[in-house]
């Protein structure tokens, strides 16, 4: 049963996830930890040094991001001795609006983390915000399941068909990568 303490903790988690979604570099750190820890299937996790080298982020910034992600329980510290490794916790924040349930998923964080390197995602966020990507992701899930197409999405969201198809194809790649991870 939800307690008052749980409510506070849920709101803190929500704010931390909002931080991640508003900060592509922090999203990249989270996505990198999630991806690498899964690939290596190592219990030791990823160190800050690896993050610094791989993502080309200054060490002080990497420490700051990892600390904030750890405070938010999005990553957890492994081992007893330095250098500590970090593994990612699965994000699955459910929001309810107007009776409908929406999910902040690892796929959304992954999409946001690609902002700097992927101009299609970059352009979509510029035009429709992170919230717009979350909506597009719902369409993309159904597109992957062969239950949606770009024409319907374009009409329902008032975007051009080519823009709908472009973001659907980008998000499809992310969804398929995450599906493979869980196979």
């Amino acid at each position: 049963m939800p307690t008052q303490k749980n409510a506070g903790s849920a709101v803190r988690d929500m704010l931390s996830i909002a931080d991640v979604l508003n900060n592509p570099d922090m999203a990249r750190v989270y996505a990198y930890v999630a991806k690498t820890a899964e690939e290596e299937t190592s219990e030791e996790g990823v160190t800050v040094e690896e993050i610094t080298n791989e993502l080309d982020i200054p060490q002080a910034t990497a420490y700051d991001y990892v600390g904030r992600l750890a405070d938010a329980s999005l990553v957890s510290k492994q081992g007893e001795a330095r250098p500590y490794g970090y593994t990612a916790e699965e994000v699955n924040l459910k929001l309810t609006k107007d009776g409908n349930e929406y999910t902040v998923s690892p796929e959304l964080i992954d999409a946001v983390s690609r902002r700097g390197e992927n101009r299609n995602i970059d352009a979509y966020i510029d035009r429709h915000g992170v919230g717009g990507v979350a909506t597009a992701l719902e369409y993309a899930e159904r597109y992957v399941d062969s239950e949606m197409n770009h024409r319907l999405m374009a009409r329902e969201l008032d975007v051009s068909p080519i823009e709908a198809e472009t973001i659907l194809q980008e998000l499809r790649k992310i969804i398929l990568e995450h599906l493979q991870k869980h196979e």
């Binding site: 101009r119 051009s160 823009e163």
Partner: peptide
């Protein structure tokens, strides 16, 4: 659909 995109959508 392929050629009639508004100019402000750059990736197209």
């Amino acid at each position: 659909e392929l050629v009639g995109t508004p100019e402000e959508y750059d990736p197209a």
